[in-house]
């Protein structure tokens, strides 16, 4: 953990993919294959990180409370998005309740989790080039196996 006083956050220099989508910022951490969605307030914090600004400067730039920014930076660090995880206090808020109440200025970092099926193109991979070879004990979904090649017909 990095010390909190005068902490200057730095974004992880490689392995992060950023995508803007409908007012939100989506981040994909390639080494861990984890994805996150930043709401507009958290996105402002993320975009203010330039490797020179400290917490209070980021708070001013993003138009947010320093305490909230500190907590957001800690979360960003824990998500693997920063070079260091800052030792900054968490703000204990019932975020779901606040969001429901319409307090959208609270920075939110949400992990994007989807079932694997949403990603896969085909669930049946035995005997296909991407999947294991078909064998007498591991038959093809189609039932047709070319054993010499290990591919399905």
């Amino acid at each position: 953990m990095a010390p909190s006083s005068g902490f200057v956050p730095r974004r992880r220099p490689t392995g992060i993919l950023v995508e803007q989508l409908e007012g939100e910022v989506l981040l994909y951490v390639e080494p861990t294959h984890r994805a996150f969605c930043l709401n507009p307030a958290a996105a402002r914090v993320w975009e203010s990180i330039d490797g020179a600004r400290d917490v209070s400067s980021i708070a001013r730039t993003a138009g947010l409370d320093s305490e909230l920014v500190g907590s957001t930076l800690r979360e960003l660090g824990e998500a693997g998005l920063l070079v260091e995880v800052p030792d900054l206090p968490r703000v204990d808020l019932s975020r779901r309740r606040l969001v429901r109440a319409g307090l959208v200025a609270i920075p939110l970092i949400l992990a994007i989790t989807v079932p694997r099926a949403a990603e896969a193109a085909s669930a049946c991979t035995v005997g296909l080039p991407s999947g294991p070879a078909c064998t007498p004990t591991r038959p093809c979904c189609s039932g047709i196996c070319n054993e010499s090649l290990g591919t399905c017909g």
Partner: peptide
Amino acid sequence: EPLRAAFQHHALTAARQER
């Protein structure tokens, strides 16, 4: 909510594939 999450996830993985 899972539909939205899948949409976001697809956006990221597609960007990665395109890159």
